[in-house]
Design a protein around this nucleic acid. Structure first.
Length: 501
RNA sequence: GCCCUCAUCGUCUAGCGGUUUAGGACGCCAGAUUCUCAUUCUGGUAACACCGGUUCGAAUCCGGUUGAGGGCGCCA
């Protein structure tokens, strides 16, 4: 089936992300935005951001800010929209009421829409009644053919009213790029409300007008909108507007396979930033939620994703948001960064989101970079850095005495072992105090002592704990090199004190 | 209740009638390296929801069943 009058653009496709600022910008919004962006960039088109704030009661500036900052963080740049403007603005629906009014009046004039004076209570009762009788709940059409004189009188009397569309009794078909042919019987729908008044349009009406005026060629949105599509198509037909192409993306699901909600992943995108995730990892992860390029490769940059993106390869079924996989993507993207880049990223992260970032401030960039280099294979998130390596940035480290104990070695022995370590450390010259020398000296010491030869851990474990204060850390030689001779010896002496206490 | 959509390992997925003993990745479990942790490497675990039909041949096409999700707002 050929869709009638699909809008054409000489300058490539025009797509849009149309979130409503009534909740935090979450991964679902981000994924929809990403796919729109990828599609636009891949095909040399434009990506438009439109804020759907027709619901004045629920819209909130802070939510709008979370949309903008979320997209910016991901690097999903819009071509037209807030802070950018463009030839088809304004891009806030709340600033477009005059435009909608014109079309509303047209529909009213042509008899395709009408005023309805039924009370919400009345409607609620009807709906309940229909459901109880196993019928689809739809408006009775009571006000559909009200004589004009009564409508005028009611309006003059300021009787509460809304505007409804006259839903034709027919079957609407459309081709979805991802799903193929989709069919709806409009008879089941009833006349829906398209505006609360001439100055208060509702979603299903406003989108149609905006998508037309903004010359949107492809509507790429979540599957939760699929049943809105026939309504929107009817309005296009009634107004004689072209029909855009539709692509309904699969939902992102929570662990229990239900729609993402506050209960699970509907966390603001900013939260992921705070948790220490990389935007490039988030994009990569999100792209692979419901889409897959040809081949087995999984790690891609944004540019590479654009290169490969294709709506035809989008999955139909919903996808569970699995944070373990996000962690893996993040670790992989972290490994793509060199030490200088990590230094910048970690520094920026700590500055913005860490409460005790000041503990690294007294250390030189060189020193910090050495620590970063050492810890980098251990990092999953940016937040891991300070958590894993805080002992490099403390005058005094604290840890339980039991940590020093290797396997089932007796407590008295720990002091002896640590003194052995101390003697080896002290013999190494300042200039030669590097990991390689440390290792040579300690290994030769080990080879001279039978009990250490049998179990190197007996010597090395207490040393490592003395230096790091942790059960898990890099090797003692690597730590000691960065700490330096003086500090290393100081820490071993502290450990001896602790062990003999 | 009604409508729409979907259905391959626990999860993300490859597969678009024969090349498949169903491939990859995450996770998990072993092993190697090793003083610990991590990295890296090797191996393992585990799936075509079910029932019919079409066909020489079906995970792939068709029908039904079941299951899951979404929608049915004077929200978007």
């Amino acid at each position: 089936m050929d869709d009638p009058k699909t809008p054409q653009s000489l300058f490539g496709p025009r797509v849009r992300l149309a979130p409503s600022p009534t909740g935090w910008f979450h991964v679902g919004n981000a994924r929809t935005g990403l796919f729109n962006y990828l599609f636009a960039r891949k095909n040399g088109g434009k990506f438009i951001l439109r804020i759907e704030d027709t619901d004045k009661k629920r819209s909130n500036k802070k939510y709008e800010e979370s949309i903008l900052s979320g997209l910016k963080w991901l690097g999903i740049e819009w071509d037209e929209g807030p802070e950018k403007n463009g030839p088809f603005g304004p891009y806030y629906q709340s600033q477009r009421t005059e435009i909608y009014k014109k079309y509303l009046e047209q529909l009213l004039r042509e008899g395709e829409a009408y005023y309805c004076f039924c009370s919400p209570k009345e409607l609620e009762a009807q709906r309940a009644d229909m459901v109880s009788r196993g019928l689809p709940p739809k408006y009775s059409g009571k006000c559909r053919d009200l004589p004009e004189s009564i409508v005028k009188q009611n309006l003059a009397d300021k009787k509460p009213s809304v505007i409804r569309i006259k839903m034709p009794n027919k079957v609407v078909k459309f081709r979805d790029i991802i799903r193929g042919e989709v069919e709806f019987n409009l008879d089941l729908l009833g006349d829906s409300v398209i505006a609360k008044s001439l100055n208060e349009p509702l979603y299903n009406f406003a989108v149609v007008i905006d998508d037309y005026l903004m010359k949107i060629t492809h509507v790429i949105r979540g599957e939760d909108h699929i049943s809105n599509t026939p309504k929107q198509i009817v309005m296009q037909e009634l107004l004689g507007l072209p029909r855009p192409n539709y692509a309904h993306l699969p939902m992102i699901l929570g662990p229990d396979r239900s729609k993402l909600s506050k209960r699970h992943g509907e966390t603001s995108l900013t939260e992921y930033q705070k948790m220490g995730y990389l935007p490039e990892a988030m994009n990569n992860f999100l792209a692979f939620l419901g889409w897959h390029p040809l081949g087995d490769r999984e790690i891609y940059t944004l540019e590479e994703l654009i290169e490969r993106f294709d709506l035809e390869r989008v999955q139909k079924g919903g996808a569970v948001f699995n944070i373990k996989r996000l962690d893996w993507f993040n670790a992989q993207h972290l490994k793509l960064l060199n030490t200088d880049q990590l230094f910048d990223r970690i520094g920026e992260y700590l500055k913005n989101f860490s409460s005790n970032s000041q503990i690294i401030e007294n250390y030189s960039p060189d020193y910090i970079k050495k620590v970063i280099e050492l810890e980098s294979p251990r990092l999953t998130k940016l937040s891991d850095f300070l958590e894993f390596s805080d002992f490099f940035f403390k005058e005094k480290i604290e840890y339980p005495k039991e940590y020093l104990k290797w396997k089932n070695i007796e407590e008295k022995e720990i002091v002896i072992v640590l003194n052995d370590c101390l003697s080896v450390l002290e013999k190494i010259k300042d200039k030669e105090f590097n990991r390689m020398n440390l290792q040579i000296k300690f290994y030769s010491f080990i080879s001279e002592h039978d009990d250490y030869k049998q179990d190197k851990g007996k010597l090395l474990w207490p040393l490592r704990v003395a230096l790091s204060g942790k059960k898990a850390s890099p090797s003692p030689f690597e730590i000691a090199e960065i700490l330096g001779k003086e500090e290393s010896i100081k820490r071993v002496k502290e450990a001896i004190k602790l062990a003999s206490s």
